[in-house]
């Protein structure tokens, strides 16, 4: 899970404080204030719905990207395929775990 630290205004502390923003896949999952520990969290069901809704769009974008890569450099594209075929399902299952857990 990717986590980014930044400064945001905390409504409970009443001033700008350091927050950690946790991402699951491309989506914000949780934002925590370092000072008061107040957390804004997206329910797993909402996150999962968001993730599933975007999957077809992501698949289309991936197909388009692969097509461009194949046209630009066929040799490089073919050589990268085995690694990608193995890695993509791993990546998807990791994302799904982040979203659900």
């Amino acid at each position: 899970m990717i986590a980014c630290q930044t400064e945001l205004d905390c409504l409970y502390c009443g001033r700008p404080t350091v927050h950690t923003v946790f991402y699951a896949s491309l989506y914000i999952k949780r934002i925590v204030c370092h000072r008061c520990a107040h957390a804004v969290e997206k329910p797993a069901a909402v996150l999962l719905r968001q993730y599933c809704r975007d999957l077809p769009w992501r698949a289309t974008a991936l197909a388009r990207r692969l097509k461009h890569e194949a046209q630009a450099d066929p040799l490089l594209f073919v050589s990268s395929l085995p690694r990608r075929v193995v890695n993509k399902p791993i990546e998807l299952s990791r994302e799904l775990a982040e979203v659900c857990l």
């Binding site: 630290q5 930044t6 400064e7 945001l8 350091v18 491309l26």
Partner: peptide, 18 residues
């Protein structure tokens, strides 16, 4: 933004949305 000036790793303008 304020982020870097406070020695933090990320200015909020760099935070990813989708």
């Amino acid at each position: 933004g304020q982020g870097r000036r406070m020695g933090l790793p990320i200015n909020k303008i760099f935070l990813p949305i989708h």
